[in-house]
């Protein structure tokens, strides 16, 4: 890992510790020998209160490429995650995570995770990434909501 990348990721970690929103978590993965892999993080985004996404924390993996922050990190939910803007592989379709759209090197982890939280309850119907959720969101909102609530139970917070 280049020292530039290492410094930036350490800074991300420091800033996250200093200021992260309630209910979110994010930390670098640990290798088998206990050392940290700063390029690969696990994180959790809570569903917003008073929405169909509430009472759950959705797990994410964040992979920072070697040319981060010129290029955005790859942010994924679990494969098969039910959301109109999440690909079957779990990759999230969000403009701030797209190099050709709104990604800027200044965007930090907190902004990314808040962006994902926002996306959960306000899907963008113009950027479908999977068919089932997109179809239900557009045509059968009751079904969509039921499935989201069901999914929320799967990722329910402890207790």
């Amino acid at each position: 890992m280049s020292s530039l990348l290492k410094n930036r990721l350490q800074e991300e970690r420091k800033q996250w510790r200093k200021d992260h929103p309630y209910g979110f978590f994010a930390k670098p993965e640990k290798s088998a020998d206990g050392s940290l892999n700063l390029q690969s993080w696990t994180a959790g985004v809570p569903g917003k209160d008073n929405t169909i996404w509430e009472n759950a924390t959705y797990p994410l993996t964040i992979t920072f490429p070697n040319d981060f922050p010129s290029k955005p990190p790859k942010v994924r939910l679990p494969a098969g995650f039910y959301h109109p803007n999440v690909y079957p592989s779990g990759t999230i379709c969000l403009s701030i995570l797209n190099e050709d759209q709104d990604w800027r090197p200044g965007i930090n982890l907190k902004q990314i995770l808040l962006g994902v939280q926002e996306l959960l309850d306000t899907p963008n119907p113009d950027s479908p990434a999977q068919e089932p959720a997109w179809r239900a969101f557009g045509k059968d909102r009751a079904l969509y909501e039921k499935k989201v609530i069901e999914q929320a139970k799967k990722y329910a917070k402890a207790g």
């Binding site: 350490q10 970690r13 420091k14 510790r17 200093k18 206990g34 050392s35 940290l36």
Partner: peptide, 14 residues
């Protein structure tokens, strides 16, 4: 102080 100790512990690992 959590932040401070975490930062310090990072030095011992990283």
């Amino acid at each position: 102080m959590l932040e401070f100790w975490s930062q310090l512990l990072d030095i011992f690992t990283d």
